[in-house]
């Protein structure tokens, strides 16, 4: 399977009270197209730092990251922003929708940032939202939508510019169980049907089975790379 992301020997240090704290310690792995990869591990193990580095938001202290064949770690910050805008979609735990914008306008933001005309961006965003069962909801403000609907808008926002890599940070954390499963099914379909790489950071063991592959982290290291079946067996999850 083709690799969307390859990261090799990544380390990340943060300064604290005059010393350096190593948050990621020499980790390597990859994220593949057509797969949903789950990144799991206890709080503070470095999951958020890893996805921040893979999305070009944080720089590495050591190591190299390649996304779709481009060396992210060699890019200057301004180029990283433009690369991120074009190639990566984000889904956040708290949705992070702009409260003053309608669902369609929120979903269209990556296209707007890229300079696509308002009309084209909104048409594409509406089509995506309607494809996710949001007919009649596209002009509503986020506060008029349920949590599940807001997360769908966030998913549409992550897809509107057609990126190959989708990074999801605890996408079900703010949702009830039923809505969480629905959202995960949408993400799963995106990974499999559209040949995209979907990386999901989660604590929620109820959604592990949606993944094709699970990377386990502990104390800044990747301690396991499992198929979902193997991982569920290891963790004794039904």
């Amino acid at each position: 399977m083709q690799q969307a992301v390859i990261f090799s020997n990544i380390s990340k240090d943060f300064p604290l009270d005059g010393r350096k704290i190593r948050v990621l310690d020499n980790i390597s792995s990859d994220i593949r197209l057509g797969e949903m990869t789950m990144l799991v591990g206890p709080s503070g193990c470095g999951k958020t730092t890893l996805i921040s580095i893979l999305s070009g938001i944080l720089s590495t202290t050591e190591g190299r990251v390649d996304i779709m064949g481009a060396a992210l770690t060699d890019m200057p910050d301004t180029k990283k922003v433009l690369f991120r805008r074009k190639n990566i979609g984000f889904i956040f735990q708290q949705y992070n929708l702009l409260p003053a914008l309608s669902a369609a306008e929120n979903a269209a933001i990556p296209l707007t940032a890229a300079g696509v005309s308002n009309k084209k961006a909104l048409a594409r965003a509406r089509a995506l939202l309607e494809g996710m069962g949001m007919e009649g909801q596209t002009e509503k403000l986020p506060r008029q939508l349920s949590g599940g609907q807001q997360q769908r808008v966030a998913i549409a926002r992550s897809l509107v510019h057609n990126p190959k890599l989708i990074i999801c940070d605890e996408p079900t954390a703010a949702l009830d169980a039923k809505t969480g499963l629905q959202v995960m099914q949408i993400l799963r379909d995106i990974a499999n049907e559209k040949n995209r790489a979907v990386l999901v950071v989660t604590h929620d063991n109820r959604i592990f089975h949606f993944g094709d592959r699970i990377l386990e982290m502990s104390d800044g290291r990747i301690t396991g790379d499992y198929t979902t079946e193997d991982f569920l067996k290891k963790e004794h999850i039904e």
């Binding site: 922003v81 805008r85 984000f90 702009l98 933001i109 990556p110 940032a113 926002r157």
Partner: peptide
């Protein structure tokens, strides 16, 4: 600020 953070993450310069 958080909205600006989200916009920066999404790709606003």
């Amino acid at each position: 600020l958080k909205q600006f953070g989200a916009m920066k993450a999404i790709g606003f310069t």
